[in-house]
Amino acid sequence: MRRWVKVSVAAAVVLGVGGYVAEPYAQDWMLARDACDGALPPDAVEQLTPDDAHLLDETSRLHEGLGSYTCRLTAEGGARDDGRLVVGMEAYTRRDDQDREFMSMFPEEGFSPQAPLPEGLPGFIDKYHDINFLLPCPELAKDAGGRQRELLVRMSLGREANHGVPGAAYRTAVALANGASDRLGCGAEPLKAPTGGAVPPDPEDDVETVPLSESKGTACGWMAGAGLPQDQGLRVAAGVNDAAPTGRCDLTDRDGESVVALAAWYGDWSNRLTSRHGVRHSMTATARCDGEAANFALGASSDDIPGVGKAVQRRLLKEFAEDQVRRRGCSDLRFF
């Protein structure tokens, strides 16, 4: 709240004086207020906007019949004529659109980098650094297959946005998801932004790891009792959020290199993902969760890792899938 709040206090005066309508800070305030049909928190947008730029334009597009809603806020500068992205959002309620988006998030045999959101938020951060939510839509009719309709929301920040501002990205993402639910008639329970100074992690660089011996209190704590060697410097990256449509438990070496990756994907969209990559997944499992498919898979850097050979890897997949099934109340767990 450095410059725009002052402008908002004086907005009525500014708008009443013709010579000041185009004053840059007044334009910043008006664009932030109007962007995404008023859903964006202006203070968070101000924090995310690059320090050397004023806002340039905002657009919103709603297609109720197609179940889609998009909006975009840009700032001056950048290589493109339409400015540089500050915040962008895409929201979809149709299965085909959602499947397409999920396939784009997981192009690398399904084991693309991802990071969890704070516990309780139904989403994750994908390899593109987008914040994704998947929400049930109780006010929309079931789809042709008799399944509960859902809302997928993807929120992007521009490369030059101030990504490191504590809390601003989550407040913005939650506000956009709630706004999209209203605009598309989804009726999802409103999300609440996490409190405190959380900064979204980079899925490729910022996912925290802990020594195997200290992993018991994490969301992947089952690894601590999985009989893995304790003298090899193995570490655990816990990427599980029990409300999200995907999650990871990764085992790395002391240098941070992946040893074993265990992934879970929830929803019927995951059947398409695993069938696309199925021939490459030597260890997989399936279950039913909330009436839809769940898929689990293990990826390893080698079958001959000292202390983590093929037999141990199969045991890890079994324990991972069983832990996920317990956490989510799933059924019909099967291994392949």
Rank of each mutant, 00 (worst) to 15 (best):
R3N: 11
R3T: 11
W4Q: 10
V5C: 01
K6W: 05
K6Y: 05
V7E: 10
A10K: 12
V13A: 13
V13P: 01
L15Y: 05
V17M: 01
G18E: 09
G19C: 12
Y20N: 04
D28I: 09
M30K: 14
A39M: 10
A39S: 10
D43L: 10
Q47V: 06
P50S: 10
P50I: 02
D52K: 12
A53W: 01
R61V: 15
E64N: 07
G65H: 04
S68M: 03
A75S: 14
E76S: 05
R84D: 05
V87K: 08
G88V: 09
M89I: 02
M89P: 00
A91E: 06
T93V: 13
R95I: 00
D96L: 12
Q98A: 05
D99C: 02
M103F: 09
F106D: 15
E109N: 13
E109F: 06
P113V: 01
A115D: 06
P116D: 10
L117C: 02
L117A: 10
Y128T: 15
H129P: 02
L134W: 06
L135Y: 08
L135Q: 11
E139S: 12
L140A: 09
G145M: 06
R147K: 14
R149N: 02
R154V: 13
L157E: 00
G158Q: 06
H163D: 13
G164V: 13
A173P: 07
A175R: 08
A175G: 08
A175W: 01
N178F: 11
A180S: 14
D182R: 15
D182Q: 15
A193E: 10
A193V: 00
G196L: 02
V199T: 15
P200M: 07
P200W: 03
P201Y: 04
D202M: 03
D202H: 14
T209G: 05
T209D: 12
V210C: 07
S213H: 00
K216Q: 11
G217P: 00
C220P: 13
G221Q: 09
A226C: 11
A226H: 13
G233M: 07
L234D: 10
V236K: 11
V236T: 03
A237T: 02
A238N: 06
R248P: 00
D253A: 07
S258K: 04
A264C: 08
A264F: 09
W265G: 03
G267A: 04
G267L: 03
W269T: 04
N271M: 08
L273K: 04
T274E: 06
T274C: 01
R276M: 13
H277M: 03
H281Y: 14
M283T: 10
T284Y: 00
T284E: 11
E292M: 07
E292R: 08
N295A: 12
L298K: 07
G307L: 01
K310N: 05
Q313G: 13
R314P: 01
L317Y: 08
A321V: 00
E322K: 14
D323P: 03
V325Q: 04
R326V: 02
R327W: 11
F335I: 02
